[in-house]
Design a protein around this nucleic acid. Structure first.
Lengths: 152, 152
DNA sequence: TCAGGAGGTTTTAATTTGAAACCATCGTGT
DNA sequence: ACACGATGGTTTCAAATTAAAACCTCCTGA
């Protein structure tokens, strides 16, 4: 799980998160958690993965503070797995993944679920990156910049 | 690479893309491609991964139409790897990953690169999901909905 | 012509994954 | 009290994946 990171990536804002959610299953677990799943068995049935793998993934998500266990909610003696604030902050990433998937992984006539506004049932807008002044910007319009170190 | 997908995920807009970019390295390669890297050796040096793995990952990205090879650009007899339109469409996802990483994987006083507007050097805004009417919506405000099948 | 560098592939070992079996705890019925 | 199933895991072991290193090929420059 803990992969070695190259010199160049040791400080990279893209590489670090991948240690937490960079495998196939973790993001699917998080997505299911957004859908309201909370119990070990629910995740296992929904995703169809081996129990030991689910166990390992949940442990990793807990260790990274993306999910946490809570005692119970319906009186049953078991614990439940719920997203933390850090985990809920993955929502835009999940939406980005979903929108990309919808654009490129379905045939034009193939049915698929849509993410819609609960208020009125209309599809949500496309995610857009905007500059401070509100312009929509693409990759060509941006660059990464390392601020100079502060004096001390 | 090609993982089995459970019944539930066979049509899921989140699971399908993960087959293409759901491993640790692929997204880092794509990020480097956004940064202008094009050559096999450049990727290898930047990421520090084994050559056979890079080879396999590039092959997978090519097979999924995320990158493509172009004959040359500087006269050298080799090919270069560049993002396709599909690959460039990963930009919002990469930004979402980066923003999440910056929020949760750096100490408050730890320096890290910022994504800034080329025009004026100001940091870009945070990615936000908006409904049709322009409201910013979170996970709680949305749901997935499967449109009814069309008659034929 | 020979030394290297770029761009890979092959080989082999270590790590990870996955399926199945196993185990522990709780609740229920009898 | 006891059997039994459901839930929530852990252990075991085989199979697949990954990683490191060695190797190969083509091209270039001295």
């Amino acid at each position: 799980m803990a992969k070695r990171v190259s010199h160049r990536d040791s400080m990279c804002g893209v590489a670090r998160p991948l240690d937490a959610i960079g495998d196939w299953w973790s993001l699917l677990i998080v997505r299911d958690a957004f859908d309201g799943l909370r119990r070990f068995g629910e995740f296992q049935k929904s995703l169809g993965l081996a129990k030991n793998i689910l166990s390992a993934r949940l442990r990793n998500l807990l260790a990274h503070g993306i999910m946490e266990t809570v005692p119970a909610s319906d009186g049953s003696p078991y614990q439940e797995y719920v997203l933390t604030e850090k985990g809920r902050s993955l929502f835009p990433l999940l939406v980005a993944l979903r929108q990309w998937g919808e654009d490129f992984f379905f045939e034009p006539d193939e049915a698929h679920v849509l993410l819609v506004d609960r208020k009125n049932g209309l599809p949500v807008r496309r995610l857009e990156l905007r500059a401070q002044d509100g312009r929509v910007v693409g990759a060509e319009d941006t660059m990464v910049w390392l601020p100079p170190a502060s004096p001390e």
